Structures are given as structure tokens and as C-alpha cells.
Simulated assay, not measured.
Amino acid sequence: MVVTRRAARAARSSITRLPVELLDMIIRYLSLEQGAAMCRISHLFNALATPILYQSVTFDTDEQLLAFLNTMNRPSGASLVPHIQHFGLPRADTLYMPKLVAAITVSLLPLTNLRVLDLATADEVSFITLLRTAQFPHLTRFDITVHPKNIEAVLGFLQRHHRDLQHLAIIHAEPVEIPSPIHLPQLRSLYATDLVLSRLNVEDAPLVELRIYNLDEEPTSLHPISIDPSTARRVRSVTLLCGYIPIDAFDDVAKSFPLINTFEVEAMDLPRLITADEIIQIGTYLEKFTELSTLNLDISTADRVLNEGDAIIRGWYGACKTLSSVTFAGKTWLREKDKWSALCEAV
């Protein structure tokens, strides 16, 4: 079918008669490429789509990051500043040369409406100037890779933004020292090592989610989880990420967070292979949880043990009657009216 210019103009005219609120909802369903194309249709669509396109600025590739920095460097880039609320660096192995770090810093410093800042990188990137000078009045989430070169600047940044932070991720490949506790009264979720957790003051915080990773590769227990008991009782989800997953870690979590609803264990390397005796041991630790409903374990076992998978799940349910979903050894079991069934392979 051939669409004439008159028909195309009529179609555009019909769309523009829709309420602005409805157009806004339509634009939010578009892909990034479709939204960019809509900006080129008319001044109206450009005005409607631009704030939505730039509200969350994240990148899949280095090329996208460079294109964004070039856009912000133009005179028109200043008009985009009020719209940007979420900025996240690409997860690819980007080579952060000093010139690129400086360009990122220049683009980020004016973003006074920023709510989410993700500076977690695979490389040791300091962002010293940004961390020392930036002030984001509305910042609620901060993800950062910490190393000896930037630890002092990171701590200063946290002290300036501590009153409003609700989500914090502190990632590091070697131990870092926090000389004095940092007060985070609004924190709701935290991703950090157990040692960093011990240096954060979250006694008054509405903390509900913890992701704790352990850098040790040896089969040792986690360091004692240092958290105020009243705060621990508010936590509802705990995830452990370990190079080696010690079974005793189940006991550490059960003692510290007996009221959690969700407990997950993720292997940072290859999935952990556990024995039949350790499966029984897990059951004894599950007895200490009183409200646990979801258990996700990124651990494997020998085929001869896995053949008894249904019996294992029933045994764990006998230890913890609140369980309703268990992921274990590549399968997910769901409970309905005290009957368990492995419905699907775990994703």
C-alpha cells in the first residue's frame, strides 16, 4: 500500500490531537531507537520524547557512552541536564583513559536532579574530582568500585550524601578500610562485604535487603555479620555471593536474620558441589528461620544425590514449614497446599 503525503500528514495530525498525557504513556513504551526517531517528527514530539529518553542514561557499549558525552559537550547539551535522573557506566571492559574520565566528570557535575549514580567498573577508575566536588541533592542510589586510590574521596562523597541514600553498593577486589562508621539513616538495600557492613551505621535505617559478598576463596566461614539486632529484624532479603560457599554461612545468616523471607546463595565462580551430609546440615540450619518462603541456592550436587531431589526438598520443608519456593541444583520446586513439584529448570 502506498501512503500519500496527504495521508501521512493526516495521520500525524490525528496523533497530535491526542491528550499529552496519553502521548507520554505511548512514548514510554517505545524502544530507545523508536523514541529517537519520534524526536525527529516534530517540535511537539521532540519536546515530549526528550525528557523520557534522557531520564535514564545507561550504556550497553562504549560507543553509546562516547555519543552521549559528545551530545552533552554541545551547546544544546545544557537543555538535557534537568531531565537526567539515572546515570550508569557501561558494564563492558571499558578503557578509562584520563581524558575519558575527565569528560564523564564534566558531564556529571551539573546533573543536580540525579537520583541514581552507577560508577561500578571492572577497572580501577578513581573519579577523584567527581567524588570530591559533586553534590547531588536528590541522590538515592550510589554504586561504586572502591580501591586504595579513591577510598578517601568515596568516604567524603558518602558523608555528603548520607542523609538521602536508600541504596548503596560498595564493590572492591581487595580489603578496604573505613576508619569511622558512616551513618546511613535512610538505607533500604546494601551490597557490600561483611567487613564493610561492620563499618556502616544503619541502626535507624529501614534496611530490608542485604547482598553480602565474601572475597575469601578458602572454605572458611563468613566474618561475623555485625549489625544491630533491631535492624536485623527489619531485613527481609539476604543474598550471599561467595567464591567458596561455606555451609556454616547458612548458620551465620539464620542467627543474624531469622525473620527474612528470601535467602539466596550465589557462586561468584563455579557452582559449589555439596555432599549428602551437607544437605542434611542445611536442613538443621533451616529450622532457625521462622518466616523464610523463598530459598535460592546456586549450588550443585552429585547426580546420585540429585536423584533424591524431591526427598531433599520435602526434608527441608520439614525443617522450615514456611518455605514455598526452592531453587536447588538447577531446578525450581514450588509448594501448593503442602505438595511440592519441580515445575521448571532454574534460569
Rank of each mutant, 00 (worst) to 15 (best):
E264N: 14
D251S: 13
I245S: 10
S226H: 11
V3G: 00
T61V: 05
K99W: 10
C344G: 01
A254E: 03
N214P: 00
I282P: 03
N70F: 08
L273M: 13
A311V: 09
Q166G: 10
T322Y: 03
T4V: 01
L89W: 06
V265H: 03
F263R: 03
I260N: 01
Y29C: 12
I182A: 02
E336N: 11
V116I: 15
V305K: 04
Q55C: 11
V146I: 15
L80P: 05
R132Y: 09
L80G: 03
N46F: 12
L273Y: 07
V154T: 15
E63T: 14
N296D: 09
H167A: 08
L65D: 06
I282N: 01
L306R: 14
V154H: 10
V20L: 14
S221P: 05
H167P: 00
Q85P: 00
P98E: 07
L139K: 08
E33P: 00
E278C: 07
T105A: 02
A47L: 08
A134H: 09
T327H: 04
T239E: 14
V3I: 15
L259S: 07
V154R: 10
R5D: 12
L114W: 09
D123C: 11
M38Y: 02
R233T: 07
L139S: 05
D252V: 03
T327L: 08
Q85W: 00
L334E: 11
P175T: 05
L286G: 04
E209R: 12
T301V: 13
I144S: 06
C39W: 00
S42T: 09
L66C: 07
K321H: 13
K331C: 00
E266N: 07
H223K: 11
K255T: 11
N70H: 14
H161G: 01
A78E: 05
T290H: 10
K337S: 10
A102H: 14
H86N: 04
C242W: 02
R40N: 05
D24K: 09
L131S: 02
E217V: 08
E345F: 12
P148N: 06
W316D: 03
P179I: 03
N296E: 06
V20A: 11
G88C: 07
Y317K: 04
I313P: 06
S293T: 15
P90A: 06
L130D: 01
A169H: 11
A319R: 14
V57Y: 10
P219M: 04
L100W: 12
I27E: 06
T4N: 02
A205Y: 05
H183Q: 13
I279M: 15
H161E: 00
L273P: 00
H147E: 00
V326R: 02
I299R: 08
M1C: 05
L215F: 11
Y29R: 14
L215Y: 06
D143E: 07
V146C: 15
E218D: 11
N261M: 04
L197F: 08
E203H: 09
F59A: 05
